[in-house]
């Protein structure tokens, strides 16, 4: 499925070619840029290749060999890793997916509401609350962890996904509010001023003007939320007890123990590779929205 889908994305992108140089006009420049980008890609891909190679090789070779080519190749680590823990990785993937998707919905909805207020509405105390909102970005989470844990424990939410998901619906991640505020402020104000004159409510302006014009930033927020939630391990580590509720990251952390006995490192790296697949394709697909976004912006102007 991935191949055709990815191809669709590619075609999509070429269809909306808009900015700067294109491949036809200056072939030499384009060749140079491709060469540079491919060179850089290799630099970026190296760790992935290394992980891939580690997942195929015997554990004895993983830490003391600098070569990328395994001496013997085995794919055993994949089924071994998948079923290695008491609960299969399929469950972990499902749990991660549910948490990540709910987080995306929550973050995009709640943060865009708050960002609209900060970016476009006049109200007393706006700057004060904006500063407070930014302040919530600044406190290291290690010191709020325990009071927060006690709070969620009292709500009866520990060992459920609620502590991981509900805050997203309450715009607890100020990063995204701030991000959207910056982008909302970049949208021409005449648009909503005109709408305001026509008697549009703030809600309609938000829903009919702001959101459609903000696809690039909403897509960005969706992508980041998905990826960061998928990668997050500290929240799940603290709030999820039962292995059946574990996320992929927690599963990976249950594989090896640097202090104790035997560890299945190849299995760990095999599962690490698999854990990248969903986020890689989520990323690839959501780029479409980035592109749609400009098309819309162009039309409206």
């Amino acid at each position: 499925m991935t191949d055709t889908a990815a191809k669709a994305v590619l075609d999509d992108d070429r269809g909306t070619e808009v900015v700067g140089l294109d491949d036809k006009r200056k072939p030499w420049a384009s060749a140079l840029i491709h060469a540079l980008l491919i060179g850089a890609s290799i630099l970026m891909l190296y760790p992935l290749l290394w992980m891939l190679s580690a997942s195929f090789r015997p554990s004895q070779e993983i830490f003391n060999s600098t070569s990328l080519i395994p001496s013997e190749v085995s794919v055993d680590a994949y089924p071994r890793g998948w079923f290695g823990l008491r609960v299969s990785f399929g469950v972990f993937f499902w749990n991660s997916l549910v948490i990540a998707l709910l987080s995306v919905i929550g973050n995009v909805m709640a943060c865009s509401l708050a960002a609209f207020a900060f970016a476009r509405l006049q109200f007393r105390g706006r700057n004060f609350w904006f500063a407070i909102m930014l302040g919530t970005l600044m406190l290291p989470y290690h010191v709020t962890l325990i009071p927060q844990y006690v709070l969620f424990l009292n709500l009866g939410w520990v060992n459920t996904i609620l502590p991981l998901v509900v805050p997203k619906f309450l715009a607890a991640d100020a990063f995204f509010i701030f991000l959207m505020v910056q982008f909302f402020r970049g949208i021409p104000k005449e648009l909503d001023e005109a709408a305001m004159m026509d008697g549009c409510s703030p809600w309609r302006i938000y829903w009919k003007i702001m959101l459609p014009l903000s696809m690039p930033v909403l897509a960005t927020a969706a992508i980041f939320t998905f990826l960061w939630t998928w990668d997050d391990f500290f929240g799940p580590l603290i709030y999820l007890n039962d292995m059946r509720t574990f996320t992929v990251q927690l599963g990976l952390r249950s594989f090896v123990d640097s202090q104790g006995g035997q560890s299945d490192w190849a299995g760990l790296f095999a599962m690490s590779i698999l854990s990248l697949v969903p986020i890689f394709f989520f990323f690839l697909f959501f780029q479409r929205l980035l592109i749609q976004g400009i098309a819309t912006t162009g039309m409206k102007r």
Partner: peptide, 13 residues
């Protein structure tokens, strides 16, 4: 209106 839009954030905060 401003405070209504901020309501989810206020609850969370």
């Amino acid at each position: 209106a401003g405070y209504m839009f901020l309501l989810p954030w206020f609850i969370g905060f």
